[in-house]
Amino acid sequence: MKTTRVRAVLRKELREYRHNGNIIYAMAVVPLVFIVQPLVEIFTLKTSAALTLRHEDSLLYLLAIPALAPAMLASYGIVGERDQGTLEPLLATPIRSDELLAGKALAAFVPSLAIAYGIFGVFVAITELFARPAVAAALVRGPEVIAQVVFTPLLAGWSTWVGIAISARSKDVRVAAQLSALASLPLVAVTSLTAFGVIHATLRFAVICGVALLVLNRLALRVVASAFDRERLITGAK
């Protein structure tokens, strides 16, 4: 794989985001809505609530953001090129399928990661600044912050690959976006169930999930590249 060509695709995508900032704003809006209600609740919590909070993993709720955020960008990646008629000139260059897919994946992954970490940072900062100290201490704990830091790229990576795979097989931009959003729901469900205590977040559970996501992310490029059918994308046949 030639990094020059991966970089070329990434740079092109980032330039498109820069020229059309609405893409990134739209990506950030949904996750921002995610944190409004929890923040409002946190501000109203009394110091006595800290004891209950200490036995929950509420902060993991924010892991839904990296699971959800890449869906839109990733799902647009390939079918969007096809839709605007730019896929054929792109595929007519020496770019290989894995290089194109890696560039597209990075272009969805990088802003998603920035948004997820950014919103997490904002959430933690507001909590530390404005919530009662006992509540903040109960909510923002070391293991959960580590989980957030470690799982954010893993979840965003997986969600990105699912979106790219859907994009490479879809014929319509809207269908691809809907399917990608739908496909990220299981991850959102797992993170939410963990945050609400339905699934117990033990170290063992975290390690298993982490390793599984790592393996899936490692395999994803190869699997998606092998399923990438240039001919079908160009001609719409098959």
Binding site: R15, E88, T93
Partner: peptide
């Protein structure tokens, strides 16, 4: 033509020169 319409002429060409 299949150009990236949100990019400038030179940005389009830079992308392909890199590819």
């Amino acid at each position: 033509p299949g150009l990236y319409l949100r990019l400038s002429v030179i940005e389009n060409l830079e992308c392909f020169a890199d590819l």
